[in-house]
């Protein structure tokens, strides 16, 4: 690979996000195997404090943003473009997250580079990085290389160990001066999560419903089952988007990250965006008539019987068990 690796140390509310360390970890592995430099870019925020925590990088490039604590994606693209001019990296790693959405694509377009999205695995084969991406809701994988091993790769959060990107070392920090253009998009404020009727992050048992619940009237079945187990009802994105449950019940990429003792997934296929919010539950039980649904790949137990046939019987048996 002709050139080093540049990682955008993604931040949210002044803190580096988990994917920043995941990218540093995978970037470190590639850099060591191919004998190239790994550099991290910190844009704005508490730059000095964040930079000092990025010891997995050989060097941290710090861009001061003054009072702008949440630079918009167009601004970040412009800054990364200028930093890339100065450093000529072969590979640029960006988080495939809501925070960074669009940055990798736009940067690649501006620099005439290839962009590979949804990356969940990297192998070095014959001295070349081979990237695996997941597509079509996690049902299909693709192995791909970049032309001349140069380009932008968006790293899917939760796919790589964040610990591998954490180091006690103090990195060399270099301040980089760039021109910060004004953007027609202006960040105004954060909107904190609404405090809803139920805080799903606080329950040991979650009965979670997906598209398979079919219509809003059937949510009541899940509510009854959850009540019989002392749990709460959560949901995947399609149920929330239909307005069948409030946003506060959403599990996944944009929603809540939950770690209950039991996550009972009813009619949820297990798209990567959903898995991101629940895969660390102590026990996952999936009920889905599609035996190829990705949810079964991360579940401890599963069944393909119809959820409507199961839920009533399970609820009755749970109530019986309580009575004995």
């Amino acid at each position: 690979m002709n050139g080093g690796i540049l990682v955008l140390a993604e931040q949210l509310k002044g803190e580096p996000t988990g994917v920043a360390f995941e990218m540093l970890g995978v970037g470190r592995t590639i850099a060591d195997e191919l004998g190239v430099q790994l550099e991290a870019v910190v844009i704005g925020g508490e730059g000095d404090e964040i930079a000092s925590g990025l010891g997995a990088a050989d060097k941290v490039l710090k861009v001061d943003m003054g009072d702008d604590q949440m630079p918009v994606s167009d601004t970040v693209v412009s800054i990364l473009d200028q930093v890339s001019d100065k450093r000529s990296p072969a590979l640029i790693l960006i988080g495939c997250t809501n925070v960074s959405q669009g940055i990798g694509t736009r940067l690649a377009e501006r620099r005439g580079l290839a962009h590979l999205n949804f990356c969940t695995k990297v192998n070095i084969e014959d001295g070349r990085p081979v990237f695996t991406s997941q597509l079509f809701g996690g049902k299909i994988f693709a192995d791909a290389t970049l032309p001349e091993d140069k380009g932008v790769v968006s790293i899917y959060p939760g796919a790589f160990p964040a610990e591998a990107g954490k180091s006690e070392k103090t990195p060399e920090v270099e301040k980089i001066d760039v021109e910060v253009p004004e953007s027609p998009v202006v960040f105004k404020r954060f909107i904190e999560p609404e405090i809803g009727d139920v805080d799903i992050t606080g329950y040991d048992v979650l009965v979670s419903v997906g598209r398979g619940i079919q219509n809003p009237d059937n949510i009541e079945l899940a509510e009854e089952l959850a009540a019989a187990m002392g749990g709460a009802v959560s949901a995947s994105r399609p149920v929330i988007d239909q307005g069948w449950l409030p946003l506060t019940r959403q599990v996944g990429k944009s929603g809540m990250n939950v770690k209950p003792k039991l996550y009972l997934a009813l009619g949820i296929s297990g798209a990567p965006e959903h898995q991101e919010g629940m895969k660390n539950a102590s026990m996952i039980v999936a009920v889905n008539t599609d035996d190829k649904a990705p949810i079964f790949d991360i579940s401890h137990y599963g069944t393909t019987i119809d959820l409507f046939d199961l839920v009533e019987v399970l609820k009755d048996k749970l109530e019986e068990a309580k009575g004995t």
Partner: peptide, 20 residues
């Protein structure tokens, strides 16, 4: 300047649930 796709495939299952 597209990426070079080596192969597309249905992912191998690594940690399949115990099916009941």
């Amino acid at each position: 300047r597209g990426v070079e796709i080596a192969r597309m495939y249905v992912p191998e299952v690594t940690g399949r649930a115990e099916m009941i």
